[in-house]
Design a binder for these strands. Structure first.
Length: 637
RNA sequence: GGGGUCGUAGUUCAGUUGGUUAGAACGCUGCCCUGUCACGGCAGAGGCCGCGGGUUCGAGUCCCGUCGACCCCGCCA
């Protein structure tokens, strides 16, 4: 028999009571985390989001309350009234913040019962994720999920407070907007009023926030949901939350300062003091030192070790002498058996072999053949005893075993500047050392080997623990990204960041002559190998914006059709501006020490973009389709 | 789209070389128990071995297909 709440009021939360409260009369309300029924003595662990308090019901308290207590099961919802009592010294529970006291109940109200559960929040072994997601409301009761969601709240509040103090307005932008088929696929929303036409859910509020700058709001931010219809990963959900901001009259340094400020505040929520400002590194440097544009600084950089070998020795090893030979060092690995080493080879991306990139991982054998060179390699890479070192270089022979499907990379050793259509333009002109396509392949290959090994040996070198479980937060800015990337499939240039990014002022005249050499005023903020956010100084002049669209192969008509409203807006007094967007989910994931975004999103989707709890997506009725003027030609099952 | 791991009771898992009636723990039901906090004791219920097909005298186990969860590649301006 269930009771009504009546006008009963809660006096305390379940995690609040301490020894000092002994003697006071309290009313607690919550869920039964666990019951221990000893017959005439029953213990109920009552739980709410603040914690757990032990409620004791004895037979002496009266038949009515005792019978109710005996009836209670896991996750029943009840109100317990009684007196706080100090526990006898022998019965104190040191694992519980409230463990010094208990509530001796003289009355219980059963506010609701609970069916036998698929799993309980009190379980020590975690249920399968499929089950957890289907019964997400139960899963979210678990202490860990409660902590994660609370942390998310605190981080969002800390960031809001910080940005507010810095003069930012939080301004909402539409969810139903225009499809701009560039980059990720859009989620579309059909229009009933205009059959055959669609709104799109925003991949980001990019154009709206730029327009807000045109409108004179000076500093905008929004903690906003964004949508991308692409395949998922542990760190990618189709809907995700961004901390989106834009600043008028901005220089990159201003954006950096703001981001550093609110990240400091976010990390403070877990009691971690972040050092600011963050170091900065150019894109080229990142590739050279780490073989990736989002370097994980917790592990040693790559070392170029060509000088250790003579040209003949390199040729003897089947390696190109004119391309980098890179040492990858993973500290603290210790002895590796032959069998282990063979297994490690499975971790290296298959693409390396196709590209003719060699991984030399038999150090003992190399030492035998080239003792001096290998000593030099260890010196150059800073290796200490127990560090695992493998060499990555470009093979001279790119014909594979079977000799098929492994065409030699064109211009292999020729030092052809990467990303130039012509293959010859402006290396010297820029005054910057540009990586050839082949050099980049070697360095990126080494970067991938580095990450694969780092992950494999995460348990052996403490500094690099699993994805989220960092004890060491290394942030940095990566700057000077190329403006364009050559799209092999489409045979044209793509915007590396997005087409509203301003080219570097010095590189403007190369827009047409040598697009591959143009740097963008774009920047990423990177944490332990994960891209937390990405931003840029935007184009604020219509003429430059049109040039960029043109460089991207967009005809004036197409520009007009897709971005006409924006090109027009740019002409009505647009201030210079720039901004950034950071993934809130990723930040919270890192702070929570979680390994998947799903652990910090209350209602996430599965890898196939399904919500298992509400079972979405679903087919819709013919009536709905008819109203929208839509005919379905292909169904999922 | 491709590769990998997994799918057995409500849950987490075990299940040998293909061989009788598929097990354990927790949970659930009933009984006992006044100091438990992973309470304890006794008894009991609970299975489409993801689904479909095949091989076989015989399939949880082998083969093919399919569905689902997870991880990775592609993809993610």
């Amino acid at each position: 028999m269930l009771d009504f709440l009546g006008d009963l009021k809660r006096t305390h939360l379940c995690g609040e009571l301490r020894a000092a409260d002994a003697g006071s009369r309290v009313v607690l309300m919550g869920w039964v985390n666990k019951r221990r029924d000893l017959g005439n003595l029953i213990f109920l662990d009552l739980r709410d989001r603040s914690g757990i308090t032990q409620v004791v019901v004895t037979a002496e308290a009266g038949a009515e309350v005792h019978e109710k207590a005996a009836e209670v099961r896991s996750e029943f919802v009840l109100a317990a009234m009684g007196q706080v009592k100090l526990r006898d010294p022998g019965t104190v529970n040191k694992n519980l913040p409230t463990g010094e006291i208990e509530v001796v109940a003289d009355e219980l109200r059963l506010l609701n019962d609970c069916k036998p559960l698929p799993f309980t929040p009190a379980d020590t072994v975690l249920a399968n994720e499929e089950v957890r997601l289907k019964y997400r409301y139960i899963d979210l009761r678990r202490a860990e999920m409660q902590r994660n969601i609370e942390l998310r709240h605190k981080v969002a509040i800390a960031i809001r407070d910080h940005l507010n103090a810095q003069g930012f307005y939080e301004i909402e932008t539409p969810f139903m907007t225009r499809s701009t088929p560039e980059g990720a696929r859009d989620y579309l929303v059909p229009s009933r009023v205009y059959p055959g036409e669609f709104y799109a859910l925003p991949q980001s509020p990019q154009l709206f926030k730029q327009i807000l700058m045109i409108s004179g709001f000076d500093r905008y931010f929004q903690i906003v949901r964004c949508f991308r219809d692409e395949d998922l990963r542990a760190d990618r959900q189709p809907e995700f939350t961004q901390i989106d901001l834009e600043i008028s009259f901005a220089r990159p340094g201003m954006v950096f300062h703001v981001v550093e400020g609110f990240l400091k505040a976010a990390f403070a929520t877990i009691g971690f003091e972040l050092e600011t400002p963050f170091p900065q590194m150019s894109y080229d440097q990142a590739i050279r030192l780490y073989g990736i544009d989002k370097p994980d600084l917790r592990l040693p950089a790559l070392a170029e070790v060509n000088v250790a070998f003579s040209r003949e020795n390199l040729q003897g090893l089947g390696l190109s002498s004119s391309l980098p030979l890179v040492a990858v060092r993973i500290p603290g690995v210790g002895e590796i058996s032959r069998k282990e080493r063979d297994q490690l080879r499975q971790l290296y991306p298959a693409r390396l072999a196709e590209q003719g990139i060699k991984v030399l991982d038999d150090e003992r054998r190399l030492e035998k053949s080239f003792p001096e060179a290998m000593a030099k390699v260890r010196e150059l890479s800073g290796a200490e005893a127990g560090d695992y070192v493998v060499l990555v270089g470009a093979g001279t022979v790119t014909l594979g075993d079977g000799g098929e499907g492994q065409k030699p990379a064109t211009g292999a050793d020729a030092g052809v500047p990467y990303r130039t259509g012509s293959g010859s333009a402006g290396n010297a002109a820029s005054g910057r050392s540009r990586l050839s396509m082949r050099e980049r392949q070697v360095l990126e290959g080494a970067g991938q080997v580095r990450l694969a090994l780092a992950q494999r040996f995460a348990d052996r070198h403490k500094r690099f623990e699993k994805k989220g479980a960092a004890n060491d937060y290394r942030l940095l800015w990566v700057t000077g990204f190329p403006m364009f990337e050559w799209d092999e499939a489409e045979g044209r240039w793509n915007a590396a960041h997005h087409p509203f990014t301003s080219p570097h002022e010095e590189d403007m005249e190369r827009l047409e002559s040598d697009p591959g050499a143009v740097r963008a005023l774009a920047y990423d903020v990177v944490l332990n190998g994960m891209e937390l956010g990405s931003g840029s100084i935007r184009i604020h002049r219509q003429d430059i914006q049109a040039k960029i669209f043109k460089a991207l192969g967009m005809s004036p008509e197409e520009q007009q059709a897709r971005f006409g409203f924006f090109l027009e807006a740019l002409q009505y007094g647009t201030p210079p501006h720039g901004g950034i967007a950071l993934g809130l989910d990723r930040i919270v994931m890192i702070l929570a020490g979680a390994e998947s975004l799903r652990e910090v999103i209350p209602f996430p989707k599965t890898a196939k973009a399904v919500d298992l709890m509400v079972d979405a997506p679903t087919p819709v009725s013919d009536r709905q389709l008819k109203e929208l003027g839509i005919r379905v030609t292909k169904t999922g099952q």
